[in-house]
Nucleic acid binder design. Structure first.
Lengths: 123, 123
DNA sequence: AAATCATATTCTAATTTACGAATATGATTA
DNA sequence: TAATCATATTCGTAAATTAGAATATGATTT
C-alpha cells in the first residue's frame, strides 16, 4: 500500500509555497514566537495567547505537519518546541524586507520602443 | 475622506503573515524567479510560464499590492521588475530550511514530572 | 476616431481554509 | 477500571482563495 500514489512530484516552488503558506497566518507566527525562547505545553500557549485549546491544537498540528515544531509527552502535558531555529532568521529577514517595501512605484519609461510582443496567446 | 477608517493597527505578525501569504503560491514564486535576472513584460511571463494572460495579470496585481514588484509602461507593454531583490535571499533561506525539515520527531520524555497545568480554560 | 495591441478588471464557480462546537483519545491517578 | 487531566480530532459552516471566462481599459498606430 503506497501512500499518495497519484501525487505528482511536487516542484521546488510548490514545496516552498507550502512552507510560506504555513507561515502566512498571524496566530501560527505568534505560536512560533512563543516557542523561540522556550519549550511550552499546549495549555501554556493557550494561556499566553488567550485562545481556545482546540484552536491552538489545530494550529500546532499544521506547524507539526510542516515540520516546524517538535513535541514530546511529559506526564499529562505535551510540550512543543521549535524543530528548526533557522525559521527565526527567516522571520527576521521577512520583517526587514517588509520595512523596505513601499508602494509600487510607477517608473517613467526610459525609451520609446513600442515593439509588438508577438508572444503566443492561448485564450 | 480617509481610507480604511475602521482598520485596526495591524500587528507585526499580521503584516508578516500577509507577506508570507503572498509568497505562498507556486505560480507567484515562479513569476518572482523569472524576474530575478531580468525585467519582463506580461506577455513574456505569459510565454515563459505557459499560462493565460489574465491569470498572470492577476498574480502580478497581488505581487504589486504586496510591494514585491514594480512596473513601468514601455509603449504597448508594461514591464515588471522586482521591487526588492532581498526576497531572493528569503527564498534561498526558505529553501535551505526546507532541506533541514524532517518528519516531526517524538522525543522521549526526560523526566517524569506530571504536574497539573492549572491554566485557565475558556471553552 | 477607429482599429489594434498589451494589459487589467470583473464575474463566477469550485476549492480550500478558518475556526467554533462537540467529542474522542491517551496518559495518569484514585 | 473509573475518574480526571491535557490534548487531539472530527464535523459543520462561513469566509477566503483559486483560477477560468468574458470584458474593459489605455496606449499606439492608421
Amino acid at each position: 500500500m503506497q501512500d499518495d500514489a497519484d501525487a505528482q512530484p511536487a516542484t521546488t516552488n510548490e514545496v516552498l509555497a507550502s512552507l510560506f503558506k504555513t507561515l502566512g497566518h498571524p496566530q501560527r507566527l505568534a505560536i512560533l514566537r512563543l516557542l523561540e525562547s522556550q519549550e511550552l505545553c499546549v495549555c501554556e500557549i493557550e494561556a499566553a495567547l488567550d485562545l481556545r485549546q482546540a484552536y491552538i491544537s489545530q494550529q500546532l498540528t499544521l506547524l507539526r505537519e510542516a515540520g516546524l515544531v517538535c513535541f514530546r509527552r511529559e506526564g499529562w502535558n505535551v510540550r512543543y518546541r521549535i524543530a528548526c531555529p533557522e525559521v527565526y532568521t527567516l522571520l527576521e529577514m521577512a520583517e526587514a524586507i517588509h520595512g523596505t517595501l513601499g508602494e509600487c512605484a510607477w517608473v517613467e519609461p526610459e525609451e520609446k520602443t513600442a515593439v509588438s510582443c508577438g508572444a503566443l496567446r492561448q485564450t
